[in-house]
């Protein structure tokens, strides 16, 4: 919308996904345009994480179609998607516990061709999260939850993503740090990265999103601009606790 160029970067069309005999996604249709911040909100078990995994090729959809940069992703592996600029900070952080902060950041750049620029990008991440610089030689598994969250995000940024998938980046963080993380998301987006954001913290997420989708038991039940959804009664009742 506002800052989009109109070109859909990512398109999901009636995507269904199953865990064994449990259907987690029952036909998700959504679109992310270049330059946008898009939020997925919804209660626990709605299928937000499953949507992220399916987009990233970590799960194969049983039905429906996903298009990234104009290509059907059915036959594209996660490695290739990463090479095509898709990076993720997964739910639960998932930092490499026995590697140092620095090594974790290096892992984020694993698929990059330009390894010579990795060192300067790590500097940029340290500028963004000074705490990571102080802790750079520490094993990631020994960091606090908030520090690990910063690391997971820094690690995803090390891929120099075109599309950044963030699954609950504010989980377990103090309010002050949440604000900081969201400022950084806006900043990253302004520099040209498209962001797909999953958040429980609907208030803050909607405030920075161009558009958003509300998921419920595996389907999209509502969509609109961040402002529209913030103002919608249904959303206020269900997700903002009012």
């Amino acid at each position: 919308m506002s800052s989009s160029s109109g070109q859909a970067m990512l398109k999901l069309d009636a995507v269904e996904a199953w865990y064994g005999s449990i259907q987690a996604l029952k036909g998700i249709t959504l679109e992310v345009n270049e330059g946008e911040i898009i939020s997925l909100i919804g209660s626990n078990g709605a299928g937000k994480t499953t949507t992220m995994k399916t987009i990233h090729g970590l799960m194969k959809p049983k039905a429906g179609r996903i298009e990234y940069l104009g290509r059907d992703t059915a036959k594209i592996s996660t490695q290739e998607l990463v090479q095509m600029g898709m990076a993720q900070s997964p739910e639960g952080r998932r930092v490499f516990p026995k590697m140092t902060v620095l090594e974790n950041l290096e892992m984020g750049a694993f698929q990059r061709e330009d390894q010579s620029e990795v060192a300067s990008d790590i500097e940029d991440i340290y500028e963004m999260f000074p705490r990571l610089r102080e802790r750079k030689e520490q094993k990631a598994g020994l960091m606090s939850g908030g520090e690990q969250q910063m690391l997971a995000m820094g690690r995803a940024l090390m891929a120099r993503p075109r599309l950044l998938l963030l699954d609950e980046p504010s989980m377990g963080l103090a309010p002050l740090v949440i604000q900081q993380i969201f400022d950084i998301i806006v900043e990253i987006n302004r520099k040209g990265t498209t962001v797909l954001l999953v958040e429980q913290n609907a208030n803050v997420a909607l405030a920075i999103s161009h558009r958003a989708y509300v998921l419920e038991t595996g389907t999209v039940v509502l969509e609109g601009t961040g402002k529209e959804l913030l103002a919608s009664d249904a959303v206020r009742k269900a997700y903002l606790g009012e």
């Binding site: 990463v82 997964p90 516990p97």
Partner: peptide
């Protein structure tokens, strides 16, 4: 080493 520590996260790194 990354795969040994967290296979899922390793896949996400590409």
């Amino acid at each position: 080493r990354a795969t040994a520590q967290d296979q899922g996260a390793a896949a996400i790194m590409g």
